[in-house]
Design a protein around this nucleic acid. Structure first.
Length: 125
RNA sequence: UCAGUCGGCCGGACGGCCGCUCCGGCAAGCACCGAAAGGUCGUCGGAGAGGAAAGUCCGGGCUCCAUUGACAUGCGGUGCCGGAUAACAUCCGGCGGGGGCAACCCUAGGGAAAGUGCCACAGAGAACGAACCGCCCGCCCUGCGGCGCAAGCUGCGAGGGCGAGUAAGGGUGAAAAGGUGCGGUAAGAGCGCACCGCGGUUCCGGCAACGGAACCGGCAUGGUAAACCCCACCGGGAGCAAGACCGAAUAGGGACGGUUACGCGGGCAGUUCGCGGAAUGCGACAACGCCCGCGGGAGCGAUGUCAGGCUCGCCGUCCGGGUAGGUUGCAGGAGGUCGCGCGCAAGCGCGAUCCCAGAGGAAUGGCCGUCACGUAUCGUGCCGCGCGACCGGCGCGGUGCCCUACAGAACCCGGCUUACAGGCCGGCUGAUGCU
């Protein structure tokens, strides 16, 4: 996956306004005006714990993003769940991400992405 | 067997599926991102967190800046001795002091006769040596007793007063001016003596810290230096966000060219310079900049003219600095392992062998399975004492829980400190039992 690495990119996504909260993380999204693949960044601030715990949160979030395309339930159209190209996403980790069930978090991410899609569709008619 | 003490080590294992980062080989289109610098994408093989990676408390390497050298002063640090080391506040081996039956542990351990300060409370007294209660002596008064007819004489483990002696005892304190004992004395006192302590000298042992012995001195020097201070030794500053290279967009700077398109005057500034003992004094200077004024010019309002206003250069090419960003520094090192030698040891030397993380919004992971370990509980077998109950120990089986503590490299090393579930190994000491 393409990663966001520069501070300016993170600020751009944060200022876009499209965001969805779940128990374990917050998702922010921003549409770019180019033809590149989706890019994603992770933010886990210091208030979430020690360096070891923050590492673990980021790794589980990263694994979520990697798995999002793999196994889509049959009852939902797969292209609706995936990360969209020419979009930037930022996942902000929270402390429950340390211990929350992995499959539950995967469902969380799917519904969040779905809601983000509808938000951005509403925002730019 | 129990209790203790010291040292060392490990810090889940194996497997499956799907991934991440780096290195090396091969292959490489000119595809993708970017204005550029540069980065991304394939395949095969290999490697990929710790004992503390942590705190950032010391010591170095490395980098840049500063620096003629030496001395002095200031500031900071270190502080028994010897050794190890690149260096250290570290380590090793000793010494002194303190604690423990012992193994062993603790120790910021120079100087208090250079000077200054402080020593609360209690207590009479806390430092140019004190005298409260006492003890003792002398004198006087009172009291009591004896002798005497009386005046008086005389005695007293009695009371009081005055004067002198004393520091043994009591009491206060963290500490009371050497300690204990004997002698001595009116009572006492290093006043004398013995031992201990202290100080000095000499000798012996030791590289040294220091230890031992002999002799001398009657005792002089209270404590506090993590109070100031004194002495000895050490120390430039900042850090990989160091530093090096590449380098936009935008704004701003310079040069040249084009365009008629700027010129002049004054003021301001300041770790500046000169004069001066000095001033807020006098004088000088100024690239760039800021302000004011004068003259000229250009542009702007639908257009022309006049008056007034506003703005002040524009275009092109090149150059330099520098920001975002990129690359590098950045993984072969005071390196690991093994062997031999030297050393009590810390460690050192020689030889062989190995290459062992390198991210950058930060790789080393996610989801599972099996097993081990631990723990709880249930069932069952054996042992204890002949049996039963209870209890304890051991074994087997089932189930549940934890399915693992502290914790994540960030330029690199040597240390220190702090955190840590559970476990393993070894040395030593004490007590007890058996032979």
């Amino acid at each position: 996956m393409e990663r966001l690495r520069q501070r300016a990119d993170f600020l751009a996504v944060a200022n876009n306004g499209a965001r969805v909260n779940t128990a374990a993380f917050t998702v922010q999204a921003r549409r770019r005006d180019d033809q590149g693949p989706p890019r994603i960044g992770f933010t886990v601030s210091k208030k979430n714990g020690t360096a070891t715990e923050r590492n673990r949160i980021r790794r589980r979030l990263r694994e979520l993003v990697r798995r999002i395309d793999d196994v889509a339930p049959d009852d939902i159209a797969p292209n609706k769940m995936a990360l969209r190209p020419h979009n930037d996403y930022v996942l902000i980790g929270r402390r429950p991400a340390l211990s929350r069930d992995f499959k539950t978090m995967l469902d969380d991410l799917r519904t969040s992405l779905d809601r983000l899609d509808r938000q951005t569709a509403k925002a730019r008619p």
